[in-house]
Design a protein around this nucleic acid. Structure first.
Lengths: 197, 197
DNA sequence: GCCAACCGAACGAACGTTCGGTATCTTTTT
DNA sequence: AAAAAGATACCGAACGTTCGTTCGGTTGGC
């Protein structure tokens, strides 16, 4: 009778389960409305297990944030990779972000909307993170090739991606009646009219 | 010796002081990092006084949120009032919002950026509030007069105001090196190119 | 002398965290 | 190959603190 039983998780898979559960609860109810006991219960692990893998609640949130931001970074870079020019790259980024917003709303909720500085005081604002820097670079490159009108870089970047980010916001607030992806062409069209040469 | 002393506040002025202090602390450290005791101390009032004017911490936050949202509503409506056409109205709204962001960053921080649903579970998302409805209406009117290209209303609204809202975001995160107002013309120009007929 | 407005010490609940103990895996010894 | 020893991973009851809130008492205007 070598039953493997519903053998409780151990090691890395336990760690993953804790992170997954924490993401679900943090994005559903917010960091401060989620206690370590809630995570413990929902993940089916012990308090000690959580504190074995993470130094505390804040460290858990930081580990989660870093992992998700890094995933988003990869997604943005990969989307850009195959594309030439500001329009194509911008479109690819927006398309990928729209996909992520639909496929992993919790991730986007936690990374884009949550006010991290309230529970991760050391963290720089999200706008200075790698993915956002990358977006600004795309626009600046477009400006130096003449594809984009010459203008203030901040304005150009917010003009290209601001509308898309707000559409993602609306999707996460469930304000849209059609699938987010179906707005993609019009969103990109608008954004491009705003900054093209 | 009828010294009026530094006579402690009473009545409505005490209530105002509590609201003001709460706004300062909520926007600086966030709702959950601010205890009622913190507000009590910072405002120089007693616990009982707070609970005399507000049913609890959440009710205090709601009163504050309602007051600020109503102020913002007035600001948007007033800005629109003297203007004719989508471009003029949109520009006036953005200009006023930029001013408010600089003059009352705490208000904008609390109203626009904070995740209210975490501490006011009953509250609808900010995008369904009056000021945002008004912004969408401006765009839709512009579309029916032919000033704005015919397109999906949500896309048009986010295209017109999305860039400006992100610029306000950057200002609140102190990412900009020039005064926010100085970007106004370029922001409006971009937004208008995005949706004009 | 009445009533609303205000006071603040005290309270129970919930939170993040600890820590002595146990289970499981790894290495060493026989 | 089996047993012993050691190390790592996990367990969960319990702890100290802080929080939002209460409530019997006090003040001040009318």
């Amino acid at each position: 009778m070598t039953d493997t039983a519903p053998s409780r998780l151990r090691g890395d898979s336990l760690r993953e389960m804790v992170l997954e559960t924490a993401l679900r609860l943090f994005s559903e109810r917010g960091y401060f409305n989620t206690s370590v006991h809630d995570i413990r219960r929902a993940a089916g692990v012990s308090t000690g297990a959580i504190y074995h893998h993470f130094a505390g609640k804040e460290a858990l949130a930081k580990a989660l944030y870093d992992a998700l931001l890094s995933r988003m970074e990869t997604a943005v870079d990969t989307a850009c990779a195959g594309q030439q020019g500001c329009l194509a790259q911008g479109r690819a980024i927006i398309a990928r972000l729209f996909e992520l917003t639909v496929e992993q709303p919790r991730t986007m909720q936690f990374v884009l909307l949550a006010q991290h500085r309230e529970f991760l005081p050391q963290e720089p604002p999200i706008c200075s993170s790698q993915p956002f820097q990358r977006m600004r670079k795309v626009v600046e490159d477009g400006m130096s090739t003449g594809e984009v009108r010459s203008m203030e870089p901040w304005v150009a970047a917010t003009a290209l991606f601001g509308g898309a980010l707000r559409m993602m916001n609306l999707q996460l607030d469930q304000a849209l009646d059609r699938p987010l992806i179906s707005y993609l062409d019009e969103v990109v069209d608008c954004a491009w009219r705003a900054i093209r040469a």
